[in-house]
Simulated scan of single mutants.
Amino acid sequence: MIENKRSSAIDTVRRLLRLLQLIPVGQKVSVTVLREKLELEGDIAVPSVRTLQRDLHLLTEEFNLEVTESGKALNYSLPRGIQHWTQPGLGEKESLLLTMAQRHLGNLLPSDLQKVLDKQFYRADQILSYERPDSPHSQWRNKVSIVQGLQPLLPPELEEGVFDAVSKGLYRNTWLTIDYCNHSGKRSTGKRIKPLGLVQQEQRLYLVCQFQGHEDFRSLAMSRLTKVLCGTETFVPPADFDLQQLEAQGFFGIEKGRVIQLSFCISRDAGHHLLESRLSHDQTAEEVEGGYRIEATVPQTLLLDRWLLSFGDEIWAIRRSEVVPLVTELD
């Protein structure tokens, strides 16, 4: 009996909180509309109109809801300028959205925003993990995933303060002063750069930037930044900088490359997926003895070489012909 009363009380609290979320600020909403919204969401048991009227009367006394009459019906609204704390916390839908965003975008958010959202992320996890662990929203997190096509590796560790400084400079368009050690061990100190973009490739983070006195774009592995200072001097991003275009040109293919016309033959089993996931928009495929002949225009990169080698004896007759040189440069 005690447990049933507790469950009923919890349901009432959830319903009251959700009602408060659904009542707009400065706009009117009726009991009928509120009931329809609860039914449409399907997350909370929808009571009778009389019960909802009692709920709204309670909320009116507690939160000073504005009540107006329209015929025999009453309309409710939250007064303009209402304190934010009177708004309830996260619902399950919002919690699911936040937890999914944290899982997949955590490394790509500005550090200042990340700190602001930390409490929201924590609260969202609590709602899904402890308050409603058996709800569809909570279970959804374990029903979807993004898997890697390569051998999974642990992300490299970043020097303390590097990510904060980089994300601040990137967010505010301010110059950075960096110390950097490249893959061959050569060290550069006190270099001034314009941070232009942040890219996550598998587990690694890369900063796309422009060095002072240079016009080309370069990519620096964040794990090789040994010291970063974020100044206060701002800059105007280059008009010709387009992160998506650089990606399409193969800028993040590890080494400087060129655009080529690639053709090869591949066995039916190994190459069938290329009929669904094409190498490029202009890819063509024709059946040949033992498999398919594929032709496509792609950037020549180390990643491409590794991908071709991964098929072993399943791929043959590989040919490359240059189309046009790339104008980008990699670190």
Rank of each mutant, 00 (worst) to 15 (best):
A9K: 09
I10E: 00
D11V: 05
V13P: 05
R14E: 13
R18Y: 12
K28C: 04
S30V: 04
V31M: 04
V31C: 08
V46Y: 01
Q53S: 05
Q53A: 06
D55W: 04
L56W: 08
L58D: 13
T60S: 14
E61M: 11
F63E: 05
A73E: 15
L74V: 01
S77P: 00
I82R: 08
Q83V: 12
H84T: 07
W85L: 15
G89E: 07
E92L: 12
T99L: 12
L113T: 07
V116F: 02
D118W: 15
R123L: 02
D125A: 02
D125F: 00
S129L: 10
E131N: 13
D134S: 15
S135A: 09
H137C: 04
S138N: 06
V144N: 01
E157N: 12
F163L: 14
V166I: 14
R172L: 13
W175M: 03
D179W: 01
Y180F: 02
T189Q: 14
K191Y: 06
I193P: 08
K194L: 12
L196E: 09
G197P: 06
Q203M: 08
L205T: 00
H214Y: 04
H214W: 01
H214L: 01
M222K: 02
R224L: 08
V228S: 11
P237K: 01
P238S: 09
A239D: 13
Q249E: 15
G253L: 02
K256W: 02
Q261G: 07
D269A: 09
D269Y: 02
H273E: 14
L274I: 03
D282T: 15
A296K: 01
T301K: 07
L304P: 08
L309A: 11
F311I: 13
G312M: 10
